[in-house]
Amino acid sequence: MDTIQILLLAFVQGITEFLPISSSGHLVLTPLLFGYELQSLAFDVSLHLGTLAAVMLYFRREIARMTLAVLDSLRTRRIANQDARLGWMIIVATLPVLVLGLPLKTVLDALREDGTLLALTIASTSIGFGLLLWWADWRGRRRRDEYSLDWKDALIVGGLQAIAIIPGISRSGVTITAGLLLGLTRRAASRFSFLLAIPTILMAGGLETLDLLQDAAPVDWTALLLGAQFSFLVAYLTIHFFLRFIERISMLPFVLYRFLLGGMILFLVW
Protein backbone atom coordinates (compact mmCIF):
# COMPACT_ATOMS: atom_id res chain seq x y z
CA MET A 1 0.00 0.00 0.00
CA ASP A 2 1.31 3.47 -0.85
CA THR A 3 1.16 6.34 1.65
CA ILE A 4 -1.75 8.10 -0.07
CA GLN A 5 -3.86 4.93 0.03
CA ILE A 6 -3.02 4.37 3.71
CA LEU A 7 -3.91 7.94 4.71
CA LEU A 8 -7.08 7.95 2.60
CA LEU A 9 -8.43 4.76 4.14
CA ALA A 10 -7.42 5.88 7.66
CA PHE A 11 -9.20 9.20 7.10
CA VAL A 12 -12.32 7.43 5.85
CA GLN A 13 -12.35 5.08 8.84
CA GLY A 14 -11.66 7.82 11.36
CA ILE A 15 -14.41 10.12 10.14
CA THR A 16 -17.08 7.53 9.33
CA GLU A 17 -16.80 5.24 12.39
CA PHE A 18 -18.59 7.77 14.59
CA LEU A 19 -20.73 9.59 12.04
CA PRO A 20 -24.09 7.99 11.09
CA ILE A 21 -22.98 7.15 7.55
CA SER A 22 -21.44 3.61 7.78
CA SER A 23 -17.70 3.09 8.11
CA SER A 24 -17.79 -0.49 6.80
CA GLY A 25 -19.59 0.60 3.66
CA HIS A 26 -17.07 3.37 3.01
CA LEU A 27 -14.09 1.07 3.61
CA VAL A 28 -15.44 -1.24 0.91
CA LEU A 29 -16.40 1.53 -1.53
CA THR A 30 -13.26 3.66 -1.23
CA PRO A 31 -10.85 1.19 -2.89
CA LEU A 32 -13.44 0.45 -5.57
CA LEU A 33 -13.86 4.15 -6.40
CA PHE A 34 -10.12 4.90 -6.45
CA GLY A 35 -9.04 1.74 -8.22
CA TYR A 36 -7.21 0.14 -5.31
CA GLU A 37 -7.27 -3.50 -4.36
CA LEU A 38 -9.39 -4.22 -1.29
CA GLN A 39 -7.18 -3.64 1.74
CA SER A 40 -6.03 -6.54 3.89
CA LEU A 41 -7.77 -7.77 7.02
CA ALA A 42 -4.70 -6.76 9.04
CA PHE A 43 -5.04 -3.17 7.85
CA ASP A 44 -8.75 -3.09 8.76
CA VAL A 45 -7.85 -4.30 12.25
CA SER A 46 -5.26 -1.52 12.64
CA LEU A 47 -7.78 1.14 11.60
CA HIS A 48 -10.31 -0.14 14.13
CA LEU A 49 -7.68 -0.12 16.86
CA GLY A 50 -6.98 3.52 16.03
CA THR A 51 -10.63 4.53 16.36
CA LEU A 52 -10.99 2.43 19.52
CA ALA A 53 -8.06 4.26 21.11
CA ALA A 54 -9.64 7.59 20.14
CA VAL A 55 -13.02 6.93 21.77
CA MET A 56 -11.39 5.49 24.89
CA LEU A 57 -9.14 8.52 25.26
CA TYR A 58 -11.98 10.97 24.66
CA PHE A 59 -14.25 9.33 27.25
CA ARG A 60 -11.47 8.27 29.64
CA ARG A 61 -13.02 10.00 32.66
CA GLU A 62 -16.47 8.52 32.02
CA ILE A 63 -14.97 5.08 31.47
CA ALA A 64 -13.02 5.26 34.75
CA ARG A 65 -16.09 6.37 36.71
CA MET A 66 -18.34 3.73 35.16
CA THR A 67 -15.81 0.94 35.69
CA LEU A 68 -15.39 1.77 39.37
CA ALA A 69 -19.14 2.21 39.83
CA VAL A 70 -19.96 -1.14 38.15
CA LEU A 71 -17.35 -2.95 40.25
CA ASP A 72 -18.76 -1.33 43.38
CA SER A 73 -22.29 -2.38 42.40
CA LEU A 74 -21.09 -5.98 42.11
CA ARG A 75 -19.65 -5.74 45.61
CA THR A 76 -22.68 -4.07 47.22
CA ARG A 77 -25.28 -5.73 44.95
CA ARG A 78 -27.01 -2.42 44.27
CA ILE A 79 -26.75 0.32 41.65
CA ALA A 80 -25.89 3.35 43.73
CA ASN A 81 -25.41 6.10 41.14
CA GLN A 82 -25.92 7.09 37.53
CA ASP A 83 -22.43 6.01 36.48
CA ALA A 84 -23.12 2.46 37.60
CA ARG A 85 -26.48 2.53 35.85
CA LEU A 86 -24.98 3.74 32.56
CA GLY A 87 -22.19 1.17 32.79
CA TRP A 88 -24.66 -1.67 33.22
CA MET A 89 -26.82 -0.38 30.35
CA ILE A 90 -23.77 -0.48 28.06
CA ILE A 91 -23.16 -4.08 29.14
CA VAL A 92 -26.81 -4.99 28.49
CA ALA A 93 -26.77 -3.27 25.08
CA THR A 94 -23.71 -5.31 24.11
CA LEU A 95 -25.44 -8.66 24.70
CA PRO A 96 -27.29 -8.81 21.34
CA VAL A 97 -23.97 -8.49 19.51
CA LEU A 98 -22.67 -11.52 21.40
CA VAL A 99 -25.70 -13.53 20.30
CA LEU A 100 -26.12 -12.30 16.71
CA GLY A 101 -22.58 -11.28 15.78
CA LEU A 102 -21.27 -14.58 14.41
CA PRO A 103 -24.41 -15.53 12.40
CA LEU A 104 -24.50 -12.06 10.82
CA LYS A 105 -20.78 -12.22 10.08
CA THR A 106 -21.45 -15.17 7.77
CA VAL A 107 -23.89 -12.95 5.87
CA LEU A 108 -21.21 -10.27 5.58
CA ASP A 109 -18.64 -12.78 4.31
CA ALA A 110 -21.11 -13.97 1.66
CA LEU A 111 -21.80 -10.39 0.54
CA ARG A 112 -18.09 -9.63 0.17
CA GLU A 113 -17.78 -12.43 -2.39
CA ASP A 114 -20.16 -10.69 -4.82
CA GLY A 115 -19.14 -7.10 -5.57
CA THR A 116 -22.38 -6.14 -7.29
CA LEU A 117 -24.58 -7.55 -4.54
CA LEU A 118 -22.42 -5.85 -1.93
CA ALA A 119 -22.71 -2.49 -3.68
CA LEU A 120 -26.49 -2.82 -3.99
CA THR A 121 -26.73 -3.77 -0.32
CA ILE A 122 -24.75 -0.68 0.70
CA ALA A 123 -26.91 1.53 -1.52
CA SER A 124 -30.22 0.18 -0.23
CA THR A 125 -29.23 0.22 3.44
CA SER A 126 -27.75 3.71 3.14
CA ILE A 127 -31.02 5.07 1.77
CA GLY A 128 -33.38 2.97 3.89
CA PHE A 129 -31.69 3.56 7.23
CA GLY A 130 -31.12 7.19 6.25
CA LEU A 131 -34.89 7.58 6.02
CA LEU A 132 -35.25 5.94 9.43
CA LEU A 133 -32.67 8.33 10.92
CA TRP A 134 -34.51 11.33 9.46
CA TRP A 135 -37.85 10.10 10.83
CA ALA A 136 -36.37 9.44 14.28
CA ASP A 137 -34.78 12.89 14.39
CA TRP A 138 -38.04 14.50 13.31
CA ARG A 139 -40.38 12.53 15.60
CA GLY A 140 -38.09 12.10 18.63
CA ARG A 141 -39.03 14.06 21.75
CA ARG A 142 -35.34 14.70 22.60
CA ARG A 143 -35.93 15.18 26.35
CA ARG A 144 -34.00 12.33 27.99
CA ASP A 145 -30.31 11.92 28.72
CA GLU A 146 -28.27 8.71 28.45
CA TYR A 147 -28.45 8.09 32.21
CA SER A 148 -32.24 7.59 32.00
CA LEU A 149 -32.02 4.44 29.85
CA ASP A 150 -33.36 1.22 31.37
CA TRP A 151 -32.58 -2.37 30.42
CA LYS A 152 -35.39 -2.56 27.85
CA ASP A 153 -34.11 0.58 26.14
CA ALA A 154 -30.57 -0.84 26.17
CA LEU A 155 -31.70 -4.09 24.55
CA ILE A 156 -33.49 -2.17 21.79
CA VAL A 157 -30.39 -0.11 21.03
CA GLY A 158 -28.18 -3.20 21.24
CA GLY A 159 -30.46 -5.28 19.05
CA LEU A 160 -30.38 -2.69 16.30
CA GLN A 161 -26.63 -2.32 16.69
CA ALA A 162 -26.17 -6.04 16.05
CA ILE A 163 -27.56 -5.80 12.52
CA ALA A 164 -25.14 -2.99 11.67
CA ILE A 165 -22.53 -5.56 10.68
CA ILE A 166 -24.25 -5.38 7.29
CA PRO A 167 -22.42 -2.64 5.31
CA GLY A 168 -24.34 0.57 4.78
CA ILE A 169 -26.50 0.36 7.91
CA SER A 170 -23.95 2.18 10.12
CA ARG A 171 -23.40 1.13 13.73
CA SER A 172 -23.39 4.70 14.98
CA GLY A 173 -26.29 5.64 12.71
CA VAL A 174 -28.62 2.88 13.84
CA THR A 175 -27.78 3.28 17.55
CA ILE A 176 -28.30 7.05 17.37
CA THR A 177 -31.57 6.40 15.54
CA ALA A 178 -32.69 4.04 18.31
CA GLY A 179 -31.72 6.57 20.97
CA LEU A 180 -33.70 9.31 19.27
CA LEU A 181 -36.75 7.06 18.96
CA LEU A 182 -36.46 6.39 22.71
CA GLY A 183 -36.61 10.12 23.40
CA LEU A 184 -32.93 10.89 23.96
CA THR A 185 -31.47 14.22 22.96
CA ARG A 186 -29.17 14.16 19.95
CA ARG A 187 -26.12 14.61 22.18
CA ALA A 188 -27.25 11.90 24.63
CA ALA A 189 -28.02 9.43 21.82
CA SER A 190 -24.61 10.14 20.29
CA ARG A 191 -22.74 9.80 23.60
CA PHE A 192 -24.39 6.45 24.34
CA SER A 193 -23.61 5.30 20.80
CA PHE A 194 -19.94 6.26 21.16
CA LEU A 195 -19.57 4.60 24.57
CA LEU A 196 -21.28 1.48 23.23
CA ALA A 197 -18.71 1.43 20.43
CA ILE A 198 -15.96 0.50 22.89
CA PRO A 199 -17.00 -3.10 23.71
CA THR A 200 -18.37 -3.55 20.19
CA ILE A 201 -15.14 -2.56 18.45
CA LEU A 202 -13.20 -4.67 20.96
CA MET A 203 -15.25 -7.75 20.06
CA ALA A 204 -15.17 -7.06 16.32
CA GLY A 205 -11.43 -6.46 16.49
CA GLY A 206 -11.00 -9.68 18.43
CA LEU A 207 -12.83 -11.69 15.77
CA GLU A 208 -10.85 -10.03 13.00
CA THR A 209 -7.62 -10.74 14.87
CA LEU A 210 -8.51 -14.43 15.12
CA ASP A 211 -9.09 -14.49 11.38
CA LEU A 212 -5.81 -12.67 10.90
CA LEU A 213 -3.87 -15.21 12.95
CA GLN A 214 -5.10 -17.91 10.56
CA ASP A 215 -3.97 -15.90 7.53
CA ALA A 216 -0.44 -16.67 6.34
CA ALA A 217 -0.15 -13.49 4.25
CA PRO A 218 2.78 -11.16 5.08
CA VAL A 219 2.03 -8.08 7.18
CA ASP A 220 3.22 -4.55 6.35
CA TRP A 221 3.73 -3.25 9.90
CA THR A 222 4.67 0.26 8.74
CA ALA A 223 1.35 0.61 6.91
CA LEU A 224 -0.55 -0.74 9.93
CA LEU A 225 1.11 1.68 12.35
CA LEU A 226 0.60 4.70 10.09
CA GLY A 227 -3.03 3.78 9.45
CA ALA A 228 -3.77 3.29 13.14
CA GLN A 229 -2.17 6.61 14.11
CA PHE A 230 -3.97 8.64 11.46
CA SER A 231 -7.37 6.99 12.06
CA PHE A 232 -6.90 7.72 15.78
CA LEU A 233 -6.31 11.43 15.12
CA VAL A 234 -9.22 11.81 12.70
CA ALA A 235 -11.61 9.82 14.93
CA TYR A 236 -10.76 11.90 18.02
CA LEU A 237 -11.44 15.15 16.16
CA THR A 238 -14.64 13.72 14.67
CA ILE A 239 -16.03 12.79 18.09
CA HIS A 240 -15.14 16.19 19.53
CA PHE A 241 -16.73 18.29 16.81
CA PHE A 242 -19.73 16.01 16.29
CA LEU A 243 -20.76 16.22 19.95
CA ARG A 244 -20.09 19.94 20.01
CA PHE A 245 -22.33 20.83 17.08
CA ILE A 246 -24.92 18.04 16.77
CA GLU A 247 -27.68 19.81 18.71
CA ARG A 248 -27.43 22.74 16.30
CA ILE A 249 -27.08 21.02 12.95
CA SER A 250 -29.52 18.08 13.43
CA MET A 251 -29.19 14.81 11.53
CA LEU A 252 -30.38 16.19 8.19
CA PRO A 253 -26.91 16.68 6.60
CA PHE A 254 -26.06 13.04 7.30
CA VAL A 255 -29.42 11.87 5.96
CA LEU A 256 -28.90 13.82 2.73
CA TYR A 257 -25.39 12.43 2.41
CA ARG A 258 -26.72 8.88 2.79
CA PHE A 259 -29.28 9.53 0.04
CA LEU A 260 -26.60 10.92 -2.28
CA LEU A 261 -24.25 8.03 -1.53
CA GLY A 262 -26.93 5.42 -2.16
CA GLY A 263 -28.05 7.12 -5.35
CA MET A 264 -24.50 7.37 -6.65
CA ILE A 265 -23.87 3.69 -6.02
CA LEU A 266 -27.08 2.69 -7.80
CA PHE A 267 -26.13 4.88 -10.76
CA LEU A 268 -22.65 3.35 -11.00
CA VAL A 269 -23.89 -0.24 -10.64
CA TRP A 270 -26.73 0.08 -13.14
Rank of each mutant, 00 (worst) to 15 (best):
L117R: 14
L49W: 10
L52G: 03
T76M: 06
S46G: 09
L27E: 05
L41M: 14
S23I: 08
A119W: 01
I176F: 01
K152Q: 12
F59V: 11
R139M: 13
R142W: 11
L68G: 12
G262A: 05
Q82P: 04
L7Q: 07
F232G: 02
G50R: 03
F194A: 02
S46I: 08
G25W: 02
D220W: 01
G168T: 05
L33W: 13
L57F: 07
L57E: 00
R78G: 06
F254N: 05
A204D: 02
T222N: 10
E62D: 15
Y58E: 09
L237C: 03
I15D: 01
V97I: 15
Y147E: 13
V107T: 15
L184I: 06
H240A: 02
V55E: 02
D150E: 13
H240N: 04
V234K: 01
P20M: 09
A216N: 08
L33C: 08
L225F: 13
G128C: 10
Q82V: 11
A93F: 06
G14D: 03
F43S: 01
F18D: 04
F18A: 03
L41K: 14
A189I: 03
I201L: 15
Y147L: 13
S193C: 09
L52M: 14
S46W: 01
A84H: 04
G87A: 11
I122E: 00
G115L: 15
G262S: 08
D153H: 10
L108R: 02
L210S: 06
T185G: 15
R75S: 10
N81T: 09
P199M: 11
D114V: 14
G101I: 00
A197I: 07
R61T: 13
L181H: 04
G35E: 12
L49F: 14
T200W: 12
Q39W: 02
R77I: 00
V45R: 00
G35P: 12
S124T: 15
H26I: 15
P167S: 06
G14H: 09
S126M: 09
L71Q: 08
M1W: 06
L268E: 08
K152D: 10
R142M: 15
L32I: 15
L38K: 14
A188G: 04
S40W: 02
L8V: 14
T209Y: 07
R141Y: 09
R143M: 09
Y257P: 00
G183M: 12
L180Y: 09
L180C: 09
T238D: 09
I163G: 00
A93C: 06
Q82D: 14
G50I: 05
A110F: 01
T106K: 14
P253N: 07
A54F: 06
F59N: 08
M203S: 15
G227W: 01
E208W: 09
S46P: 03
R75Y: 04
S172R: 05
L260R: 10
R258W: 03
P199T: 07
T175W: 03
L195R: 02
F192Q: 05
D83W: 15
F192K: 07
I156Y: 10
E113T: 05
F241W: 06
L213D: 00
T185Y: 11
P199D: 09
L260E: 07
V255N: 01
F230K: 00
D137Q: 12
Q161Y: 10
V92N: 07
